[in-house]
Design a protein around this nucleic acid. Structure first.
Lengths: 202, 202
DNA sequence: CTTTAATGAATACAAATGTATGCTAATATA
DNA sequence: TATATTAGCATACATTTGTATTCATTAAAG
């Protein structure tokens, strides 16, 4: 291969490896070699090892396809959670038909089950939650005073602020147009807590 | 290895491979073998190939570490974008020191540059944008009527609704407490457009 | 222009890894 | 209990892939 200015090929190789790693498909040295039409494996290998020295890549020696991004470039892992178009009353099992799409969340909460719902109506507008917003919900059967929760009352799922008034449960909409609900303790069920709101604009 | 009930080991192997693939680290057959204390490579290989037959995995034959998740399990790719704590006036170069953290976004917009800002103040409360929210911004030098934009006026970056009034630019806060700005055309610069708002609760 | 260090190549070898065949024994089912 | 199917093992071999050595050439720097 014709020789380019110093570092240029290596820079391009880095971009190539990075994209390969992002798609979960770590390349072999020879694949890098072929991708850049280098006539020798060693050329590719020297470039990759230089990238390791520059701390742009790291390497697990000996094993096949052992080049990785440096730890601090990883940032974090993302998980995809399903956005449910509508909540069927009763059970909240994530049947595939109800899944609108998937959105990425930061994977700190490893073992908790998350899902998302599309907000309908303006009942929470006082908390800046608008119709069309996406609410990310952590499944849990209980809540603390002040939490915004997804709650099932009379077979109907909705989003309310969970509050208590003299030991009695209050489910409070955040809109003066609507009245708070004082459900009997066996007439409601908390499905989860809203931990994040997302809104896409234009 | 002692034999378990049918399919159990395979189910566990699938989970193992899945997690390996998620972290971008595809396993070899022998690594699967060792992870499950199987005494023969072939045992692991048969399990993996069965998972392929069951359409839970796919395989690139011949190459090392060639097992992948089936396409439809991929869902989508996520990219991480930086959240900037504060915008330095003038240039919006993402110096590392200003980066608070990274958040995941759906990677549809491959070639556009995204970043995120923490919202300060209540000037956009009328649009349900509260202090502490995270705004995701697409870098762009212009905007359309009605877009919510990050704009630099007098060396100060802020978020406003972009509007026009008889051909003159209006930068409108969404809060009656604040007045709209009518900047001279050479006294402001659009840094980007807000394409998403996120708010973390509790 | 001269020197130096980086780039690229040719080749060989060793280790990692995928593949194949034949066998034993446990599980599930009738 | 008898039988078919599945799980697991042992071993051998082929291919892929990482590693090492040596040399030629050119871009960059003084």
């Amino acid at each position: 291969m014709k020789r380019g200015p110093r570092g240029k090929t290596r820079y391009e190789i880095f971009a190539y490896v990075k994209s390969r790693l992002k798609e979960g498909n770590p390349p072999t040295i020879r694949e890098v070699q072929e991708a850049f039409h280098l006539k020798s494996v060693q050329t590719a290998r020297v470039h990759l090892n230089t990238l390791v020295k520059e701390n742009k890549l790291m390497k697990i020696p000996g094993i096949a396809r052992g080049y990785r991004l440096t730890k601090d470039r990883h940032a974090a892992q993302a998980t995809f959670i399903p956005v449910l178009g509508n909540v069927h009353a009763g059970d909240l099992n994530l049947a595939c038909e109800e899944i609108e799409c998937y959105i990425p969340v930061n994977q700190q909460h490893t073992n908790v089950e998350l899902f998302a719902l599309r907000i309908e109506g303006d009942s929470m507008i006082g908390q800046g939650i608008l119709p069309g917003d996406t609410a990310i919900i952590r499944k849990q059967p209980s809540a603390a005073k002040g939490d915004i929760v997804v709650v099932l009352v009379e077979g109907e799922a909705s989003i309310k602020t969970y509050d208590t008034d003299n030991g009695k449960i209050v489910l409070r909409p955040e809109n003066p147009k609507y009245d708070p609900i004082y459900p009997d303790s066996d007439r409601y069920r908390i499905l989860g807590k809203v931990i994040e709101i997302r809104r896409c604009l234009g």
